[in-house]
């Protein structure tokens, strides 16, 4: 019972700070994408303000609530968002929610694939480094980790396109096939983008896993386990990895934001029609409703997933609850 109560307090406390952060995120998003900006009226008129009368401009401003004070504008926008009304695109005759709805699953799939690749290889590399601490294998994996986390995704992506789509045409250089239309083709198109996106996180996770495992391995109960004759595999993986799992999970959650950010560039390289491409195009075309909605949704989505991962980490590893509190 006591453990349960502790877990509930932990969950609620994390939820409370997440809610505060989400609120502030929405204010910042609105401020940056709507208030700092050049006048959106010219975007709607396609840069032809001269052709519109002062009345027309005033009417557009009024219909967009641009004549109201900031808190009122924010209130109107956020209540719209909360009731699922994201407005209409300035550039295309489409609802914003429709456009985002089409792009979101694509990015979700790309990010998920990259995450799976990154967790698998990152944790594996980190385990090799920790198990062979200060030996050649450790030096090699550590060196590889630095290289992987330093390589910018746009360079890696372009390099992979050149090597594996142009020199040796194994994979398509870009494009997308919906998963439910043809799963095999879909994965085939996703190989290069997912590897590109994952690379930096393999390096990151490898380093994190290595350092956390080294800390665990230096603890006394590990020495005791070795001394009592347990096999090396049981000690390293059974004991060591079990103890590190919670922290690794939380680290994966913390890296999620930059993974999603990286997806924007990766999608641009491989012309994947996801959220990143939509965001980049909307920014180039000054399509305000889409920009604000995307920035908000992505950030809030990442924040909520991070919260879930945090709580999961607390469930797996009780020590993390105490640290966070």
């Amino acid at each position: 019972m006591e453990v349960q109560a502790e877990m509930i307090t932990f969950t609620l406390r994390r939820l409370l700070s997440t809610v505060v952060v989400v609120f502030l995120v929405s204010v910042i998003t609105f401020y940056v994408t709507r208030v700092v900006l050049p006048d959106p009226v010219s975007t709607i008129l396609g840069g032809q303000e001269s052709g519109a009368s002062a009345e027309q401009i005033a009417q557009i401003r009024q219909s967009l609530f641009l004549d109201r004070p900031f808190p009122v504008q924010y209130w109107l926008w956020i209540t719209g968002v909360l009731t699922g009304n994201l407005g209409r695109s300035y550039l295309r005759p489409q609802d914003v929610s429709e456009m985002i709805g089409a792009a979101l699953p694509v990015t979700f799939e790309l990010t998920l694939l990259a995450l799976l690749i990154a967790v698998f290889f990152g944790v594996a590399l980190g385990m090799v480094g920790a198990a062979r601490h200060n030996r050649p294998a450790d030096t090699i994996t550590s060196g590889a980790s630095v290289l992987m986390l330093s390589v910018p995704n746009f360079f890696l992506g372009v390099l992979l396109v050149y090597l594996f789509a142009m020199i040796v045409p194994l994979f398509p250089s870009g494009g997308y096939v919906p998963f439910f239309q043809n799963p095999v083709q879909n994965l085939y198109y996703m190989v290069l983008p997912a590897v590109t996106l994952a690379m930096g996180y393999i390096g990151n996770l490898a380093r994190f896993t290595r350092s956390i495992l080294l800390r665990v391995y230096s603890e006394e109960y590990i020495t005791r386990a070795t001394a009592s004759g347990l096999s090396r595999r049981t000690v390293l993986f059974g004991y060591g990895l079990h103890s590190a799992a919670g922290s690794i999970l939380v680290a994966v959650g913390l890296n999620l934001a930059s993974l999603v950010g990286g997806a924007v560039v990766t999608e641009a390289i491989f012309s994947v029609p996801g959220v990143g491409t939509l965001l980049a195009n909307s920014i180039l075309g000054s399509d305000l409703p889409v920009i604000s909605a995307l920035v908000l949704l992505v950030t809030v989505g990442v924040t909520l997933i991070t919260w879930v991962v945090d709580v999961l980490g607390g469930i797996i590893d009780p020590r993390l609850r105490a640290v966070k509190a």
Binding site: V264, V295, T303
Partner: peptide
């Protein structure tokens, strides 16, 4: 909370 690149873009 913002992915750095998305904030920088905005």
């Amino acid at each position: 909370a913002f992915p750095s690149l998305i904030l920088a873009l905005a």
